[in-house]
Write a protein that binds this DNA or RNA. Structure first.
Lengths: 259, 259
DNA sequence: CACTATTTGTCCGTATGTATG
DNA sequence: TCATACATACGGACAAATAGT
């Protein structure tokens, strides 16, 4: 009964997850299903993967297609394959997914007690898109400080930020943004935020974000858009954050007072 | 200057949004870019689309590929095409995106002042997945009431719910879930929820969800998982909601007390 | 009225990728 | 591994409708 464990693993997956009429290639759909099952722990480290034949029969694809997904998983280091033995989920260092509270005042990830690092990909003065120009109440050609940053945990990038902040100046050194948290920076430069508005949605990874987060382009990401206003209702900061949802999720707790 | 408007529309788009090395076909990537630009209003109703040649040059694809995306947009009714004139964003009734508050106690969409309707796709007694069995503290074979529902606004489905509720019984008629809001149903059946925990992430649409929400499978969706507990800390209800992020987003407002 | 530029519609041939048995 | 079918993507060519000169 060598194959029993792999076949049992198949039972944990849903054969309805694949769509022959989708524009996305079958091997990639199947790759995504297995990839997610591995990073989410449905297929535990060390366990036996379904065989090529199991996958082919279970998902109703040809053996070549099933084979290709396993080969690509092996190329990414998620599984190891041994001829005559089978395919096994590899013992990689899989970072524990980060769960951050949302809506609390101190939502800064710096308070999370996790060793996350912030890297500045670019800092420049540029003209924001038209909708932001009007939101900031700026003239058409005004240049604003744009920051593109990435946050990583144990080497794995999981968040990508694009922010616009008129009060930040060209002279501020890039290095200053690496260490200090955003809130302390706001204070240091005299920015008082009285109200924040966040919008949550989902978006496929564009090629540049995909590169920065080390995910395939088109991968679904959690998207947060944040508007920060001062006491006068003036927009002071605009941020678009995109999160790799394999590594990160937001948590909201509500106590219901009474029925 | 007949072509000026279309070429100007091209400038609103980002040629970096397409990736020739992605497993997803080029025509579908370009389709997604244009589709989103239309539903988000970047390309307003009635305006001229970039011509096939504009798109081919601007996104560095062949005319055949550019043409195919426009043909598919026309097939979906998002644009109309006229030989010798051009392609124009069609005057369809585009539903205004819904923005719902998150984290307030009364987050039920019934309170939104929008005419949303709830449809029950299925109601059945079934054995929940292993992780939920343990979360509910149930024996291995216990059957629980599972509901699959869809919420629509002006005929367009935008949310897909899968819920498990042990206290709901097999005898409850399907119809009862169509009208009443969830919270009133909880009350009626003696369910007192004291605490709720929500987790937000993103996920590609599986084929069944894609069908229910009328979107291409694989489309990025906003995903919310909600655990509802009673005063004793016993899990009483489990819900997975998936939202079409073109039509729906969550909003969180925070007042910062002081710096 | 022609003449031209632009745009969509249709066709060809070919190369590559995907998927099957 | 092989043979085969189909989808994707490319370049090129020409026709037909439209609009401006």
């Amino acid at each position: 009964m060598r194959q029993a464990e792999g076949a049992a693993a198949l039972a944990l997956l849903d054969r309805e997850l694949i769509d022959a009429n989708s524009p996305s290639p079958l091997y990639f759909q199947l790759y995504t299903v297995l990839h997610d099952a591995i990073v989410k722990g449905v297929l535990p480290v060390g366990s036996r993967m379904p065989s090529e034949k199991d996958l082919a029969d279970g998902f109703d694809v040809s053996r070549i297609t099933a084979r290709r997904t396993l080969v690509e998983l092996a190329a990414k280091g998620l599984v190891v394959r041994h001829r005559g033995k089978g395919t096994f989920v590899s013992h990689a260092d899989r970072p524990v997914p980060i769960v951050a509270p949302l809506g609390s005042n101190a939502e800064s990830l710096g308070d999370l007690g996790r060793d996350t690092t912030l890297t500045v990909l670019s800092k420049r003065m540029a003209v924001p898109p038209p909708d932001l120009q009007t939101a900031f109440g700026l003239g058409a050609g005004t240049r604003v400080c744009q920051l593109v940053r990435v946050r990583s945990a144990s080497g794995q990038p999981f968040a990508h930020y694009v922010s616009w902040t008129p009060k930040f100046s060209a002279s501020m050194p890039k290095k200053e943004f690496e260490g200090a948290s955003r809130l302390t920076l706001f204070e240091r430069y005299g920015l008082r935020i009285a109200r924040m508005e966040r919008f949550l949605s989902a978006e496929g990874a564009s090629p540049d974000v995909a590169r920065a987060l080390n995910v395939p382009s088109g991968k679904p990401l959690l998207k947060l858009v944040r508007f920060s206003y001062d006491a006068q209702g003036q927009l002071q900061d605009h941020l678009v954050a995109r999160y790799n949802s394999d590594l990160f999720s937001y948590r909201v707790e509500t106590k219901v007072g009474l029925d």
